[in-house]
Design a protein around this nucleic acid. Structure first.
Lengths: 198, 198, 198, 198
DNA sequence: AATGAATGAGAGTTCATTCAT
DNA sequence: AATGAATGAACTCTCATTCAT
C-alpha cells in the first residue's frame, strides 16, 4: 500500500504536468497522452486518477487559483497591504510565467465552461471587494487622493493585474501600467509620505 | 460572371463565419466543417479559398483587427481624441461582443503563433505610441495631472482596454475601471469642473 | 460524381461486411475497424456513411430482415403457402447460415435495444398473424386436424423456426422438429391428399 | 478461519454476480469490474478466484446449467414425467427470467466458444434422448398419437423450450406454442377426454 | 486472501486535408 | 468554382490483466 501520501503525489504530478501543458500549448493543445507522458505514467493511469479530461482540467483550475492565495497578506496598514499585494502578484507572474498563461486560458475558457466561470467570478468578486475595502480604509485614513472612487479604482486594479496575465504581444508594457497605478494609489510613496495631501 | 468580386465575397463570408465560430467556441472549438456549413459551402470549397486552417485563422485575425481602425479619429484636441477613443472602443466592444471574444482568443494564441504575435505586437506598439503621443500633447497644453507619466499612463490605458475583451467572469467591472481611467486622465471633463483638491 | 449508384453500393458493401462480422463474431466482437477493413475502406469512410456504430447496426438489422421477405409467397392454397413458407425458411437458413446467426444476435440484442425490439416485435407479430390466417383458412377448408388451435399452432411454427436460427449445439435437430411440424400441420402431404378428412 | 467453505462462498458470490450481469447486459456488456463491484470485492480479488474472464464465464455456464437439473423428476408414468418436465421448465423460466436470458446468451456464444458448444451439445443430446425415451415408452403404452415420431417430436419439444429462452420480442407467444405442444403430446390430458378423432 | 495502482492494447469517433470529377 | 467521397493521424476513454504489498 503506497500510502495516501503516494497517491496524492501522483495526482499532484499529473496536475502539474497538465498545468505545464496548458501553459505551453493552451487548452487547445492539451492532450491527455502528453500529460501522462510528462508525468511518466500510462494514459490509463491518468484516467485512474482523473476519470475524464474535464476532471483533470478542474484539477488544473484549483492548482492555478491556489498559487495566488499567498499574495494577499493581512499585515500592516491598508496601503501597505495594497502595495504588497500588487508587488506580490507582479512578482508571482514574473517568476512563474506559466501561471499567467494558465490563468488567461482559464479566463477564456470561462466563456464556455460554466463551472470555471462560476469559480472565476466568485474569486474575482472577492478579490475586487477586498481591494475596495483596502482602498476605503486607506481613504478614510486620508492616505488616498480624494477624487478616487474606491469601487472604480478597485476595478482598475483588478483589470490591470488581469491584463498582466496575457501574453506580452497582446498586452504590452503592463509593468509600466502597474507602476502608474501604484503612483496614483499610494499617494505617499515609502519615502516622501504625508505631504501632497496636506 | 463569377468575377474577382464574387470570389472576394465568398472569401469574406467564410472569414465572417470563422470569426463567428471563434467567438462562439474559441479556437479550441473551431472546426473547418462548421465554418463551411455556416457559410453554406462544402468543406472542400473552404479549402479552395483557404488552403489550410491557419490561413483561415489569418483571415479572421485581419478581419478582427480591421474592426478597430475607426476608433481613433484624428479630429479635435488631444484630450478629445483620447476621450473619444476610449468611448469608441467601449462602444465597439459593447455593440459587438464577439469582437472582444475573438481578440482575446487571438491574444492567447499569440503566445504560440509567431505570426499572430508579430502582428499583434506591432499593432499594440503603434497603439501605445499613439496614445502616449496624445497624452504628451495634452500634458504640454496643461490639460493633464503633472504627476502623470505619459508612457506609463498609455500602458495603463492599453492594459485596461485589453482587459475589457476578456469574459466578464474573468475581468469583472471593467466598465468601472474605464470610468476611473477617464476621470484621472481627462482632468477637465466636458463641463470643466472645479479643481477638487484645492 | 460517382453517382448515387456508387454511393449506395459502398453503403451496401459496408452493411454486408458488418453483417458478415456479426455472423462470425457476434455483436460482442463487432469492430468497426474490422468492418471497414473487410469493405476495403478506411475507418473514417465507414463513419462517413454511418455516423455511429449504432447506425451501422441498424443497417445490418434492415438487411437481415429483408432477406426473409421472399419466404412468404402469396400463391396457391393456404396449405401450399404454409408448406412453401416453412421450406423456404429452412432452405434460406441452410443456404445462408450466417443469416440465422445474425437473426439470433438481433434477437438477443432486442432485450437491450428498444429500437431492435420494436422492429422485431412488429415483424414477428405480423408473421404470427399471417401464419395464423393461413392455418384458419386451411382449417375452414377442412385441411387441418380439428383439434388444432390456429393461434397456438401459429405460435408453435414461429417458435420452431426461430429456434432454427440458434447454433446447432444450442438447438439440435431442428430439422427433425420442422418435419414433425409439417406432418402435423399438412394433414394431406403432397402425395396422399384429401383422404383423412373425407 | 477462512476455510475452503469461505472460499467456495466467495466464488459463488462472484459467479452469481456474473450471472446477473450477463442476464442484464449480455456477454457483450459483461465487465469484470462490474461483477467484482456487485460482489463487493476488488477487481484483483476476482482474478484471484477466476484467473481470466473466460474462467468466470465457465462458472456462469455451470451455474446456469445446474438450475435445470430439477426439471426432470423420475417419478410417475412417462406421460406424467413429460408433462411435469414441460411445466417445470416453463415455471422455472417464468420465475427466473434471468435464467432464460443467460441460456440464450450461452447458446449464441456456443457458436464461437468450443468449450461452451461441447457442454451445450452434450447436455442437449442427453436432453433429447431422455425426452425421446419418454415418448417411446408412452407410445408403447398406447398413450400417444400413432403418427407421432418419437425422435422428431422430441426435437420439437427441445426446440420449443429453447425458443422460450429468447426475449419476448424475438420469440413471441411461446406460451401458446407450449400449450399446443402439450395438447398434441399428452393425448389423455388429466381428465382423459374422449378421443376427438374417432 | 485481498487490494490499490498501474498498464498495453484497442475501442469508437473526429478532423483537417486531398482528390477525382 | 465547387463538391462528394475518402483518408491518415490522432483523440479520449475503456478494459482485462498484472504486480507489489
Amino acid at each position: 500500500m503506497p500510502s495516501a501520501n503516494t497517491q496524492e503525489k501522483r495526482r499532484d504530478e499529473l496536475v502539474r504536468a497538465a498545468f505545464h501543458q496548458v501553459a505551453e500549448r493552451g487548452f487547445e493543445g492539451l492532450r491527455t497522452r502528453e500529460v501522462a507522458a510528462e508525468a511518466g505514467v500510462n494514459i490509463a493511469t491518468l484516467h485512474y486518477y482523473f476519470p475524464t479530461k474535464e476532471a483533470l482540467i478542474r484539477g488544473v483550475l484549483e492548482h492555478a487559483m491556489g498559487r495566488f492565495r499567498t499574495t494577499l497578506a493581512p499585515h500592516g496598514s491598508p496601503e501597505d497591504q495594497l502595495r504588497n499585494h500588487l508587488r506580490a502578484v507582479r512578482q508571482l507572474l514574473q517568476e512563474e510565467p506559466q501561471l499567467g498563461a494558465v490563468m488567461a486560458e482559464l479566463a477564456l475558457r470561462s466563456a464556455r465552461d460554466a463551472s470555471i466561470a462560476a469559480l472565476l467570478r466568485e474569486t474575482n468578486d472577492t478579490w475586487h471587494t477586498t481591494i475596495r475595502g483596502l482602498l476605503r480604509r486607506a481613504a478614510r485614513a486620508g492616505h488616498l487622493r480624494p477624487e478616487l472612487d474606491s469601487d472604480e479604482a478597485a476595478a482598475l486594479v483588478v483589470a490591470t493585474l488581469t491584463a498582466m496575465t496575457l501574453p506580452a504581444a497582446a498586452a504590452p508594457r503592463t509593468e509600466l501600467a502597474l507602476r502608474q497605478l501604484e503612483l496614483w494609489l499610494e499617494l505617499p510613496p515609502p519615502a516622501t509620505a504625508a505631504q501632497a495631501t496636506d
